[in-house]
Design a protein around this nucleic acid. Structure first.
Lengths: 171, 171
DNA sequence: ACATGTTGTTTGGTATGTCAAACAAAATTT
DNA sequence: AAATTTTGTTTGACATACCAAACAACATGT
């Protein structure tokens, strides 16, 4: 019935960044998207074609880029996942903001609805004090027990993009 | 100093499946890898070339496939991440085994060392009873508050592979 | 030993997502 | 309004990861 069978990580990122920029800027422009995503304008152009074809954005030639209602819904899903994971990593797992946001940006594309819902519940319970997790914060700062897997955040969008949005807009 | 700058999700999956099969079978064969990963033998062949070039596997022409010590170390990192995330999703977030394993298989490629270490600590604290999280299990079964983002597990390896391994080897 | 079947490899093709650089349109300056 | 700058689009190229199908090697049965 829905027809959609899941967006790629790339497409989710495009929608998310576009959504955030539209919240602040009103109008979307290719150059801003490119900057926000850390890719070239040519790449954005190509991907926008697909998103337009999928009915998620409207893109006037040499003009503005706008999310459709469907695009907004999808973007909000991604943003919700990001916010929940970010909160969880900071408030429950005790990571610092920067690391949490880089990881959240990668993980947001990897969790099913079931998992994100449980994460949301957990976050809520911790916030209301029904679950107490202070002990975790005493574990120490990001011990690297595994020197082999230097898994770096593979999220394309620079951490700065995340940071600038989620804690008060800064230029 | 290390030289490596992070494996792709694909390569991590190849190493993980190879590792598991070698734990059970001794000898690795292209067809088993292909089956375990849900891809064709031709694809496996191509990817093995890259893994060999990266010093992670040894692949005799028309012969066996074996992880190098470096490959084993990397594979163990991936397996460790999987196991921690799987445990967390089941024991802390209250997901059922199947869903947890599908999600863990996607998430295992998306968490930084810092995050996985915190997750491990959390899991330990829950197991030793220092943190109690029963309330979460009463939240109900995977409510889908978000009907738009039908994010499906994008993990290539069929859930069966995960399942057969992680709860007692079954043929 | 040789025919058959299995397993492994190669080849040619596809789809994504990316860049650099050429080119086109719009906006701004003067 | 013409020149210049900025912004947007297209093109050609590349890397990854995949498949189907042709082909090569190996293993076995009789």
């Amino acid at each position: 019935m829905h027809g959609e069978e899941g967006l790629s990580t790339t497409h989710e990122m495009y929608l998310k960044v576009l959504y955030r920029q539209q919240m602040e800027n009103e109008v979307g422009r290719v150059r801003d998207l490119a900057k926000g995503l850390g890719v070239t304008p040519g790449t954005v152009c190509a991907v926008l074609k697909k998103l337009e074809h999928a009915g998620l954005v409207l893109h006037d030639h040499y003009g503005t880029v706008k999310l459709t209602p469907a695009g907004i819904r999808m973007a909000e899903c991604v943003v919700r996942r990001f916010d929940i994971i970010r909160g969880l990593l900071i408030e429950v797992f005790g990571l610092d903001t920067g690391a949490a946001e880089v990881d959240a940006c990668t993980m947001e594309h990897a969790v099913s609805p079931a998992t994100i819902n449980r994460m949301e519940s957990m976050l809520q319970l911790v916030r209301t004090g029904e679950i107490v997790v202070q002990p975790l914060h005493q574990v120490g700062p990001s011990v690297s027990t595994c020197s082999d897997c230097e898994v770096t955040g593979t999220c394309q969008a620079v951490a700065g993009v995340e940071r600038s949005r989620s804690q008060g807009k800064r230029s």
